Simulated scan of single mutants.
Amino acid sequence: MPVKVGCEVIVLSGASGGVGRQILASLVEVDKVIGIYNNHAIEHQIESLNFTGVKVDLTCSLSISEFIKNNQKILQNITLVHCAAAKTDGLLINYKESDWVDLMDINLKANFLLTKGLLPIMVKNGWGRIIHVSSVAGQQGAIGAAPYGASKMALIGLSRGIAKEYAKFGITSNVIELGYFEFGLFNVLSDLVKAQLLEQIPSKKLGNTKNIFNCIQFLMQSDYVNGSTINIDGGI
């Protein structure tokens, strides 16, 4: 069973798909979870008294303000897990400016706006955990994924700045950088590309959900891990 860590609410962005959907069932065993979604409703995905799904446009500061206003009674002692992400591939020479803007809106601007909106509550409580989900695509680089990698690397700079600014208020900000997992985008790749990616992993196996959840629990419990980037990639 997951260990209770004393948090009051976990705010999980991107709860309807990808990493967010995979870790949701484990997070509700730890504390109350507010799962934020935009395009795909998630209420039907999980049945738990600890779970509330809320539709929020994370690229709109007004939508975020409304979310905070409507949920202020339960937004106390917050762990904020940023899983909302988009990925539009393409060689840079052909990449559309509109695709760049859309990608950065979801992968970076949304992270900034939601963190900014919840920080005053964390400061008032004297406690907060901010966890940004990044990708090895940022560190390694990948053909057709330069904008995506740029957005994920930018999270590291954002997180380290937040860590230095708000540590005195009992708030930590860290990044978990993910490799290749049993779910999500890996499963839509060709067999050839899958084999090439597996060859990069020393253990020659994909990660599973528990590795991500274990890291989140560790960061929730740790007050002296701050401004760090933790790679969960099997040794890539």
Rank of each mutant, 00 (worst) to 15 (best):
H132Y: 11
E8Q: 13
M1T: 13
A86N: 11
T172C: 00
Y148K: 03
G207F: 00
F181N: 00
A110I: 00
V225L: 05
L158G: 07
K194N: 09
S63G: 09
E29T: 10
K152R: 05
I162C: 07
V225E: 01
I216A: 06
V56T: 03
V136L: 11
Q22V: 08
G184E: 03
V11Y: 01
L114Q: 02
F218C: 12
G179P: 07
V54E: 10
V33N: 03
N94S: 13
I171K: 05
M220W: 00
V101I: 14
R21L: 14
D99Q: 11
G126F: 02
I10L: 07
A154V: 06
L114H: 07
A195E: 15
T172Q: 04
L103V: 06
K55H: 08
I143L: 13
G138L: 07
W127S: 10
V19T: 14
Q76F: 04
L91S: 09
A150M: 10
K96V: 04
F112L: 10
S190Y: 08
K164T: 05
K87F: 14
D57N: 15
A85C: 09
V54K: 09
I130H: 01
D223M: 11
V19S: 04
L219Y: 00
H44G: 11
F181A: 00
I10P: 01
E8S: 14
N231H: 13
N214D: 15
P120K: 08
P202H: 00
L192Q: 13
K73P: 04
V133N: 01
S13N: 06
N226F: 05
G170I: 08
P202F: 06
Y224V: 09
C215H: 05
V123K: 15
I230Y: 02
Y166G: 07
M122W: 05
G235C: 07
S134C: 03
G17A: 14
I230R: 04
L12A: 04
C83V: 02
L24T: 00
Q221M: 15
K204V: 06
R129N: 10
D105T: 04
I36L: 15
S190M: 04
G144Y: 08
S222A: 15
L49R: 13
F183T: 02
D102C: 08
Y37M: 02
E177C: 12
S26N: 12
G141I: 06
A15R: 01
I68Q: 11
G149Q: 07
V3I: 15
K194D: 02
S222D: 12
Y148C: 02
V193N: 10
V136K: 09
E97R: 10
V56M: 02
G126N: 01
N214H: 13
V188E: 12
N71P: 01
Q139N: 12
A154Y: 04
K109H: 08
I176A: 07
G184F: 01
I232K: 01
D89N: 10
G18Y: 05
V123E: 14
S228I: 04
K210E: 15
Q72N: 15
I78E: 01
G53H: 04
T79H: 07
V188H: 10
S61V: 13
I10T: 05
I46N: 01
G17T: 12
A110Y: 00
Q196A: 11
N50L: 08
